[in-house]
């Protein structure tokens, strides 16, 4: 497996060639992962008439940023951007708190019914949103919360994505050595203090994994915002992306692609910068 350490069976191909072959294979495999994004960016600076050129190309002789400008004049796109960001941040913060509390309790505190309650919580992971969306709409309508961001924040930070987070946190805390806590208890620390002062600082890898997964889940929500939000200045980005249509319902493709590019690039940049933490986070999160 680890070619680095491989010394036996040295006969065959020299290491350098094997490495080159590996890189070539990976590069070929990566094509379908990368080309759509590149195509999207390339098409967003093309004049509308060239987007559907056959055969498709990544090049244009007359690049234009007009679609980017159009995205902001056609809809309150900047506002929608802010909406998406702040909702994702709030959701992530609440999820981190709720899941680290519940995950810690399920992993470390013995109380009657813990296992049964854990199973109840886990059902939250299995119920498809299609089952709950209509009843939820009714509930939120009764509460007068339609066309506010509350449904998005509450459901996302307390139901499905948060349940996954609770699960991850529980797995992490179970794997944590018990001695640390015992020492703290000897010092007279109570549970809340142990959770906050001892366990949370140690849980950074798991917390960062949870943060990234939750942020992405909120950022990509599509069904829920379309259901709960009705006015453009309340929209979130995925929902706004589908609204770039002209008076006949025809798609304004270049504007849409420009807007899509603007939603994707920041996430990609953040990911590239943070990817080491992310992978390490998952690696040490106990999710294995």
């Amino acid at each position: 497996m680890r070619t680095d350490a491989r010394t036996s069976s040295a006969v065959a191909v020299p290491r350098r060639v094997r490495r080159a072959l590996l890189v070539i294979a990976l590069a070929v495999l990566a094509v379908p992962f990368v080309v759509p994004t590149i195509w999207m960016v390339a098409a967003s600076v093309k004049p509308l008439a060239e987007i559907f050129d056959a055969p498709p190309s990544l090049w244009t002789d007359s690049p234009t940023l007009s679609a980017y400008a159009e995205a902001f004049t056609f809809q309150p796109f900047a506002r929608q951007y802010v909406n998406s960001v702040y909702i994702a941040v709030v959701v992530t913060a609440i999820t981190l708190l709720v899941s680290s509390l519940a995950g810690y309790a399920f992993a470390r505190i013995r109380f009657p019914g813990a296992n049964a309650l854990f199973l109840v919580v886990l059902t939250g992971l299995l119920v498809p949103s299609e089952v709950t969306i209509v009843p939820l709409f009714q509930l939120f309508k009764r509460a007068g919360l339609i066309n506010t961001h509350w449904p998005l924040i509450l459901v996302t930070s307390l139901a499905a994505p948060c349940v996954l987070a609770t699960f991850i946190m529980r797995q992490f805390f179970i794997a944590l050595p018990l001695e640390l806590e015992e020492a703290a208890r000897l010092d007279g620390l109570g549970r809340p203090a142990i959770w906050m002062r001892i366990c949370l600082p140690l849980a950074k890898p798991a917390l960062s994994a949870v943060a990234i997964l939750t942020f992405l889940a909120s950022w990509n929500l599509y069904l829920e915002p379309t259901v709960y939000l009705t006015s453009p200045e309340m929209f979130t980005l995925p929902q706004a992306l589908t609204r770039f249509t002209d008076a006949y319902g025809g798609q304004m493709w270049n504007t849409q692609l420009a807007a899509a590019t603007m939603t994707v690039l920041p996430m990609l940049i953040v990911f590239v910068l943070a990817q080491r933490h992310f992978v390490e986070g998952l690696a040490h999160s106990g999710l294995k």
């Binding site: 709409f137 009714q138 259901v227 609204r243």
Partner: peptide
């Protein structure tokens, strides 16, 4: 795409 957005809207049905 129409369908996608439609999800939303009609969900309201239940409502």
């Amino acid at each position: 795409k129409k369908v996608l957005t439609a999800v939303a809207l009609t969900t309201a049905l239940g409502l």
